[in-house]
Design a protein around this nucleic acid. Structure first.
Ligand code: MN
Ligand code: MN
Ligand code: ZN
Ligand code: ZN
Lengths: 141, 141
DNA sequence: GTCCACGTTTAGACTTATTCTAAATACAGA
DNA sequence: TCTGTATTTAGAATAAGTCTAAACGTGGAC
């Protein structure tokens, strides 16, 4: 499992250092859309050396720039990170705060509905609601 | 014009002080989706007394709580304020950074497309693109 | 194998947006 | 007029994120 993370970073032009590997590994293994601080807390014990917040931010920015993960914003002012790079939107459970992936195909009509006045380059839908019947499978993997 | 702002605040349970009036007046008169600091800069000269940033933030939060304006987030970490309380989404011009209102009817299919797995309470679409043929009228008023 | 240049990491300082605090003001009603 | 309460103010505090300068680690040149 560590091996394909190493390869993933390499093929994206990010040198796979221990700090970067453990951060990428964590992001690849969760669907929770963690904040930078949540990444820091989750990962700092997994290294023999002390981990700097600057390294976490540097790594997250490097992974975003390399296209390995993406930033997601739901509430104002909180950046979250997401290793799901498929084309998808987000559903925020207003009871739990959970952020759930919604595949883009599910919302395909949006571009068509906008008509010809606007040339859509990209868009993102954030939906707030409740999951019918408890925890939803995290689609859009 | 000052009179209906006063009334608007009163009917929403916000006591119309000079500071609050001038802030609300500014928000009602623009389509630019300003940040808190842009509000502060625009408004500070319009009062005989010095204006505190705390008052701007207090007022903006009070106006949001009272339902007079809403918060809008486009880029991560920047909260913008919008006196357009009609049901609408936002189009971000990726050339100019302008934030343009899109009426909700234009994107009506979204709820239907989501199916029965998710109960949608609200959603917001942020679209990045280019306006075809220069400046678009600010719809959704 | 040694050395070095360069990329990476670290601790902590810094910046910026926002909230908090405590004191000063304003003012509606008794 | 008096007084309690709401509001405003300046500045301190907080929190997310960036920057800095020093220390570290390592892959090649030799
Ligand atoms: Mn970023
Ligand atoms: Mn707020
Ligand atoms: Zn996602
Ligand atoms: Zn708007």
């Amino acid at each position: 499992m560590k091996h394909n993370v190493e390869e993933l970073l390499s093929t994206h032009g990010v040198k796979p250092t221990p700090q970067r590997m453990v951060i990428a590994e964590y992001l690849l293994g969760t669907h929770s859309h963690p904040t930078a601080d949540e990444v820091f807390q989750a990962v700092k014990t997994k290294l023999p050396v002390s981990l700097s917040r600057a390294t976490v931010y540097n790594t997250l920015n490097a992974l975003v720039a390399a296209g390995v993960v993406q930033e997601v914003t739901t509430e104002a002012g909180r950046v979250r990170y997401d290793a799901n790079m498929s084309d998808h939107h987000h559903f925020v459970d207003i009871e739990t705060g959970d952020v759930i992936d919604i595949p883009a195909e599910t919302l395909n009509q949006i571009k068509l509905e906008l008509g010809d006045k606007y040339k859509v380059r990209s868009f993102h839908v954030t939906i707030f609601g409740e999951v019918v019947g408890g925890k939803a499978g995290n689609t859009g993997e």
